[in-house]
Design a protein around this nucleic acid. Structure first.
Length: 490
RNA sequence: CGGGGUGUAGCGUAGCCCGGUAUCGCGCCACAUUUGGGAUGUGGAGGUCGUAGGUUCGAAUCCUGCCACCCCGACCA
């Protein structure tokens, strides 16, 4: 491993890539566009999953699992849905290989599938096809299902965690008797995502609705949480869709209401993916590497002994052996790195790169003084702290770090929401300041498209609970009732 | 998928223009000395030069196809 990483001010995307690789989160696989999530990176994803899964269950959802393959015909039943995904689908056409006689393995043309199978880019179709058999009466509703799965979208260009051909996610698919209930569900899950992003990942988000152009293929409304990265670009961190009766109609899912009438079911779907890993990395990290919020850090505290000779090490280890259980008593995950093969300075740099929130260094000097050296990853401060009451001190410090990371990101985000009142100002802000730009828009897809073509900025969302104010569209000068958030996005 | 760039040991590289089987650093292994911010010394291992062809007595080097990655576009969670 070479020393140091490219600074983010020098080359942001290289900085990002180097953190992913050098912090041992993931690497490129030999399959185009697909990555290997390495154990350290996967353990962060597992923590995310655990928290989200708990939240889903708390809000009444159950997990299930649906097939990876979707018959092509299902896929095309909802017209706008197929339009949205048709250009990025992996298609299975055969089910067998054979030896061509010269030692090469080739596709057996005789084993052609009668109907091609699509590798799911999302599961609305197979799930609604299944729901048809599950829902007959209003008593079967609401149906609140989540699935943890991999999906495939054949993207032109990929980036580690942010956009890979195959990615991991969860997708919730719910069925309701009324539109109101389905909308309530859609909004509730958006709140779950926002709560997770802010209180666990330490990433402030704007909750909003997508414009028609940016809406999910097949949805009546797409809600989203938008986060801001340190380079001033926005990242869509999660989406929650109100699907109306589109899929129920496409798959003929009806129920008998209390009044005995046949009605189509109302639907929502919502998802977050391993892209959250990208958001986590880009929101907090610095030129020394990853900075992890304590609540999602696989290792919250690392202890590095500093010693001359075995005798000193034994004394330190004896202290650490007592410290570890008391830390664990506070629910703190801790690693004691007493490897003799690396010197302390190396370990310091390594754990900084990996984003471990707190590092303790304990040497002979500390053992004499009854102290430890505590280093915070978020501020890089070093403090000398008494050994007495250390576990509780660390417990509180972790909470402080969690808060500080969030506050810092929030300050950055808030400083990067700027109002623009003319197209000139808008373009200037995009070039110089970046971030979210709050501007009036005439509500038309044409204007949105032209702004995108001319500036590369898109409407990230129309914030929920947006302040209403009279204004004029920055491009067309037509009247507008509220500002929307524009940004260049990932 | 279009334009540009890159591909040599686990990583980063020199050599390529002017063909003669490969340089250096980090890392790795052994031993010793070390250990409060990425240790030092000595010895050692590790390469079908991305891949498949072609030209040539001979290819990392010249030519062609393919693959992968990076940057910029279009597409997108």
């Amino acid at each position: 491993m070479s020393k140091g990483i490219t600074s983010k001010s020098e080359d942001y995307s290289q900085w990002y890539n180097e953190i992913v690789i050098k912090a041992d989160l993931a690497e490129h696989s030999s399959v185009k566009g697909c990555m290997v999530i390495k154990p350290y990176g996967y353990s962060i994803w597992e923590k995310m999953q655990a928290v989200l899964d708990h939240k889903f269950k708390e809000t009444g959802h159950s997990n299930a699992y649906f097939p990876l393959f979707i018959p092509k015909s299902y896929f095309s039943k909802e017209a706008s849905h197929v339009d949205g995904f048709a250009t990025e689908c992996a298609v299975v056409t055969h089910y067998r290989l054979k030896n061509d006689g010269t030692g090469n393995i080739i596709v057996d043309e005789e084993a052609k599938l009668e109907e091609e199978l699509i590798v799911r880019p999302t599961s609305e179709t197979i799930i609604w096809n299944t729901y048809k058999g599950w829902i007959q009466s209003y008593r079967d509703l609401p149906l609140l299902i989540n699935q943890w799965a991999n999906v495939v979208r054949w993207e032109m260009r990929t980036r580690l965690f942010l956009r890979t051909t195959e990615f991991l996610w969860q997708e919730g698919h719910t069925a309701h008797a009324t539109a109101e209930e389905a909308i309530e569900e859609t909004e509730k899950m958006l709140d779950v995502y926002a709560d997770f992003a802010e209180n666990w990942m330490g990433v402030p988000v704007v909750k909003g609705k997508k414009t028609e152009t940016e809406r999910f293929a097949g949805a009546l409304d797409t809600y989203c949480i938008e986060a801001l990265m340190q380079d001033g670009k926005a990242l869509q961190a999660g989406t929650s869709h109100f699907l109306g009766q589109n899929f129920a109609k496409a798959f003929d899912v009806k129920f008998t209401s209390k009044e005995g009438k046949q009605e189509y079911v109302w639907a929502s779907s919502w998802g977050v993916s391993t892209r959250l890993m990208g958001a986590l990395i880009m929101a907090h990290s610095d030129d020394s590497g990853l900075v992890l919020p304590p609540k999602l850090a696989p290792i919250q505290v690392v202890i590095v002994p500093i010693h001359k000779g075995d005798e000193e090490l034994q004394k330190i280890s004896a202290f650490v052996d007592e410290l570890i259980p008391s830390l664990k008593g506070f629910g703190i995950s801790v690693k004691y790195d007493d490897r003799d093969s690396q010197r302390p300075g190396f370990k310091f740099a390594e754990y900084e790169l990996k984003g471990v929130p707190i590092r303790l260094a304990i040497g002979a000097r500390d053992m004499e003084n009854g102290t430890v050296e505590l280093a915070r990853r978020d501020t890089k401060e070093k403090l000398t702290v008494p050994q007495e009451g250390l576990a509780e001190y660390i417990f509180q410090m972790l909470a402080q770090i969690q808060q500080n990371i969030y506050d810092r990101a929030l300050k950055f985000r808030d400083e990067h929401i700027t109002e623009a009142n003319s197209y000139e100002e808008f373009k200037d802000l995009l070039e110089t300041k970046t971030g979210f730009i709050a501007a009036h828009w005439d509500g038309t897809a044409e204007t949105e498209k032209r702004i995108k073509e001319e500036t590369k900025a898109t409407i990230r969302c129309i914030p929920l609970n947006n302040k209403l104010e009279d204004g004029v569209c920055i491009l067309t000068g037509k009247p507008s009732k509220q500002r929307v958030l524009f940004a260049k996005a990932y």
